[in-house]
Amino acid sequence: MTDAATTVPTAERRRRVLPAVASYLPFLPAIVLLGGFFLVPLGIIVCYSFWEVVDYNVVHRWTLDNYHYFFSVTAYVRTMWATLWVSLVATGITLGLAFPFAYWLSRYVPRRLRAPLLVLAVVPFWTSYLLRVYSWLTILGQKGLLNRFLQWTGMTHHPIGLFLYDRSAVILVLIYLYFPFAALTLYSSIERFDWDQLRAAMDLGATPFGAIRRILVPQIRPGIVTAVIFVFIPILGEYLTPQIVGGTGGVMIGNLVVNFFQAAEYTRGAAVSLLIAIFILLMLVLFRRSLSTREAYGG
């Protein structure tokens, strides 16, 4: 191919290259939009995180001060670890809840009911994210369902703020938010599984759980990895949930970013944003082998 290309006369080559270039031309609007307003700004964020602010102006002087500052404040570092912890726990529980659900849907539910039940489980994912967080206030809030119930049963006389404004409330709501996505992803890979294999394993003496763990789980690993990544990543950058139900105890790294930017400390905010981006990149690189975007978005 390369030999042939070098010996082709220029006119001939142009005739071959031009249509090829023309066939890439429709990418142009997407390159302008996603290049100019997605990649370039991310690049600027990277630069900002290594620049400094003098008198509210960003000065192009390279420094590690923003990072030094972040890691010198114990509260920030603790928030970073807490964010990773919350992401891990919420992702773990979400998948733990979604797996039996997907298993039930693909194995025990009659075929004609599967699609409607799956759609029913996924519908909340496409409704307003903000409203789904808000809806928990009616349950967990000061005058929420839980407090009303406890007062009614006489277990407490005063409403307790215990259910709201701490880390466990954040985790609960995150599980609620991302369950549909995990269920959909796991279901679409379990659906293709041949159940005879499980039966064969059990005929050969495997326990039901042993058979699931050693036969089913390895085969749906790409689906599991995809679900883990696409639940974990958005949680890392979560802002609204900790803001609305988290209070001071549930602060996550995304809230730090917003606080910095609202205080016009752009370079420090950029450094924290870059930390989030680095964690995401690490996840993607770590799992790139078994990751499948097709699984996630049907693309």
Partner: peptide, 14 residues
């Protein structure tokens, strides 16, 4: 795949 927060702040900076 990138959290909306990062899209928001990076465009704000731009």
């Amino acid at each position: 795949m990138i959290p909306g927060l990062l899209i928001g702040v990076s465009l704000l900076v731009l």
